[in-house]
Simulated assay, not measured.
Amino acid sequence: MPEPKGKTEVMEITEEKLEGMMKDSAQKALEAVIPELKNELKNELKEKIQIETDEVKKEESIQEVKDFLIALEKGDKSFLEKFEAKAVDSTSSSFGYTIPTELASRILEEKDKIPKMRKNAFVFQHAGPFQLPKEGTGVTSYWVGENTLITASEPTIDKEDLADYYLATRVLMPRQLLRTSAYNVTEFIARLCSRSLIGTEETAFTAGDGSSKPLGLRQTVGITDVPQVGTDLAYDDLINLIYSIAEQYRDNCIFILSTAAIKLLMKLKDNNGLPIFDPSNKRLMGYPYFESVDIPSNLGVGTDETEIHFFDPFYYWIKDSENMFMEVDKIISYLQTELVIAEATDGAYILPEAAAKLSAVK
Rank of each mutant, 00 (worst) to 15 (best):
K57N: 10
E59W: 02
E59A: 11
E60T: 06
Q63W: 01
K66D: 02
D67M: 05
F68E: 01
L69G: 04
L69V: 11
A71D: 01
A71E: 01
L72S: 05
E73R: 08
E73F: 04
D76T: 03
D76C: 04
K77A: 13
S78A: 15
F79M: 02
L80W: 06
L80I: 09
F83R: 02
E84V: 07
A85K: 15
D89L: 05
D89Y: 11
S90V: 15
S92M: 11
S93F: 14
G96T: 07
Y97D: 00
I99Y: 00
I99G: 00
I99K: 00
P100Q: 04
T101C: 02
E102N: 07
E102P: 01
E102Y: 04
A104F: 06
A104H: 09
I107F: 01
I107H: 00
L108T: 00
E110W: 02
K111V: 01
K111N: 05
I114Q: 10
P115Q: 08
K116M: 04
M117N: 02
R118H: 07
K119T: 12
N120Y: 07
A121G: 06
V123S: 13
V123Q: 14
F124S: 05
Q125F: 05
Q125W: 10
Q125P: 10
H126M: 09
A127H: 12
G128Y: 12
P129I: 14
F130A: 09
Q131N: 15
